[in-house]
Design a protein around this nucleic acid. Structure first.
Lengths: 224, 224
DNA sequence: GACTCTGTTGACACACTGTGCCACGGAGGG
DNA sequence: CCCTCCGTGGCACAGTGTGTCAACAGAGTC
């Protein structure tokens, strides 16, 4: 065990409260403890993002963050494995959402179309969000900070592998088939091109339009 | 200045020996000091790779490495910025080589062909090297170690941007044009697919063949 | 209310990393 | 011979991430 972790320290809670076995129940009423944890987590995250944006990533220490949030460094690390994690965890759900979207697409649909929809989930997550300005700031921070960029690319690499496996299954191919692997990689190439342009343009260009443009280019390669 | 760095600490020496101004001369006779530095650097690197391979990446500390190499931690950090760097620096020249290859391709050549040649440089670097077994071990180490994988992807991202700029210039487009960006990303998708399959197959599959297969798929998308 | 059980927190200690600084020592030039 | 240049190791220090422990708050039980 990784010492006494408050419910859901990293990525995702396998089971926040072992006694109350409400795991997969959709609308489980959140416990007080659970709401408290979420509150602390959010407080930490907001304080961190604030500081990182103002003072820069490298110039901000974990001690700065916890001091501003009025907590101890030990508590910080119970919620986030590292300073990078505060930022990267914001994208945590994205992989799941893309996976779900691809799974949900009709099996008869051409792969190019399904992948375009999966990628669009990510675009929507970033640009179509409640307040896109904040997401834009985060994406820009990631792209401009080498450590964060590296970690986000690595995470993408896992998503890509997941999507490839799903696509392979859909097409009735073995998991290591060539086409699903390449196809998903091309989809991420499109996604990254769109996202990066959206970010450097400060949100001026329409990422959805860029995505469609990219997939138009990919279409002949994705045809089977 | 980053304290007294022995000649060429990170990535590449801008000028190993400031007094002898022989920089761009191709076959400059290496100084004694320079050979000594190279020797220390190699000793450190070999010791590190040995330990990393045997004991695993996370289980090996920098102190372990320098103890085995009979040097101080301070000296280690004069040659390598971090433990990751020992591994990642092995690929340092690769970006330059790909850039050079792309630049050297005939301007009239179709972009797909030029990119395929650039990517092949990387494949040759890995698989066609003096002893491919060692390179294979390194590549496998990188792919299996999240931190290293992340850093190598980030590095690739820079190479991709470089290649895109070169391709744009070759095609007479502005640097931020859509086609060169997408085209280079697709090329790297092909490269990574081939490299990864080569690595997981323990060097059994032919990465060149895979590369050609990948570019065959990309060809219609890369056509202009 | 008292008691227990569970889970969160802060404090402390510790291992590891990366860097600035300084003093030592060898190599080479005056 | 002296003096400068440069690589090196030792030391100190800031920062990170983790194990451990005591304190404490909530919830449920009697």
């Amino acid at each position: 065990m990784a010492s006494s972790v408050p419910g859901s320290a990293p990525t995702r809670a396998p089971n926040p409260s072992p006694l109350l076995g409400r795991v997969s129940v959709a609308s489980a009423p959140p416990t007080l403890a659970e709401r408290k944890r979420r509150l602390v987590s959010e407080e930490l995250r907001e304080t961190a993002l604030q500081l990182l944006a103002v003072r820069g990533y490298d110039e901000t220490t974990v001690d700065d963050i916890v001091a501003a949030a009025g907590m101890s460094r030990r508590t910080f690390h119970r919620y986030y494995a590292s300073k990078e994690d505060v930022v990267i965890q914001l994208l945590a759900d994205l992989g799941d959402q893309m996976r779900d979207e691809l799974t949900a697409r009709p099996p008869a649909e051409p792969p190019a179309e399904s992948l375009r929809h999966a990628v669009t989930v990510a675009i929507d997550f970033c640009a179509g969000h409640h307040d896109a300005a904040k997401t834009l700031a985060v994406v820009r921070l990631i792209l401009r900070t080498p450590v964060l960029h590296a970690r986000s690319l690595e995470r993408q690499s896992r998503w890509q592998a997941d999507l490839a496996a799903i696509l392979a299954a859909r097409l009735g191919l073995e998991a290591e088939a060539f086409y699903p692997e390449m196809a998903t990689r091309l989809a991420f190439a499109a996604l990254n091109t769109a996202l990066e342009r959206w970010a450097v343009s400060e949100g001026q260009v329409d990422p959805l339009e860029l995505t469609e443009q990219a997939f138009a280019m990919l279409e002949p390669a994705l045809r089977r």
